[in-house]
Every structure is written in structure tokens, then in C-alpha cells.
């Protein structure tokens, strides 16, 4: 039984790790702010969920499990709010998103002057 739990934890947390690395990669690689927000969202949602569920499977204390689940719930409430606040702030400040390009003219929107009016 313990072995099964261990294997599940391994799978969950390794998937979480892969997602985290992809997130970091996406933050560096994607062409403009709005697409990077999507990449950041991966770590906020699924990676957090997988890693903390993996930890919860390993804890034998009920209260620790409860705290882990609480962290997940709070992160699921606050992280989209923070993302919205960021996206809305940059939208209000006039930062234009880069729309439907095929990756060749990526550098356009990464221009710092875009933020100004």
C-alpha cells in the first residue's frame, strides 16, 4: 500500500517538476507579456496542485493534510486575481498584446516603449 502511495507521489511530483521547468522556460522564451502570463499560470495552477497533492499523500498527520489542501485552495483563489490585476493593469496602461503572429516578428511587442501612451 505504501509502495503504491510512493509511486503515485513520484508521478505527481515529477509531473509537477516538469511543468515548473516548462513554466520557467516559457517565462524566458515567449514573446510578450500576455503570453508569458499564460506560462506563469501553469506553475500557479497545475504544478502547485500536483506537488501539494503529492506531499499530502505522504503526510500521516490529518492536520498537515488539511493545511496543504488549504494552501491549494487559497492559491487557487489568489493567483487568478493577481494575474487579472497584472493583465488589467498592463492593458489599462496601454500595453498592446502581440496578436496572431507566426513567431518571425516576435520582437515587436517586447519593445519597452509600448508601455507608454
Amino acid at each position: 500500500m505504501d509502495l503504491v502511495l510512493d509511486i503515485i507521489t513520484w508521478i505527481l511530483m515529477l509531473t509537477g517538476c516538469v511543468l515548473l521547468i516548462i513554466t520557467g522556460f516559457g517565462l524566458l522564451r515567449l514573446p510578450d507579456l500576455y503570453t508569458r502570463i499564460h506560462a506563469g499560470g501553469m506553475a500557479d495552477t497545475l504544478a502547485t496542485f500536483l506537488i501539494f497533492i503529492g506531499l499530502a499523500l505522504q503526510s500521516d498527520d490529518f492536520l498537515v493534510t488539511a493545511k496543504l489542501l488549504m494552501v491549494i485552495v487559497f492559491v487557487f483563489f489568489t493567483s487568478p486575481t493577481a494575474s487579472y490585476a497584472l493583465a488589467h493593469a498592463s492593458f489599462v496602461a496601454g500595453l498592446k498584446p502581440m496578436l496572431d503572429t507566426t513567431g518571425s516578428d516576435q520582437r515587436d511587442s517586447a519593445d519597452p516603449d509600448e508601455g507608454k501612451d
Partner: peptide, 24 residues
Amino acid sequence: GPTSYDRILAANAIGTKTVLMIGV
């Protein structure tokens, strides 16, 4: 960077990862 918003995004992302790191 290059914009301030990218830096805020990075700060947010590091915040979430700090939560994960502390748990682990």
C-alpha cells in the same frame, strides 16, 4: 524586463514558487 509588467509577473511567479519550495 523589458517592461515593468514583466518584472511584476516574475515577482508573482517567484512568489508562487516560494510557496511550493517552503512546502517541499
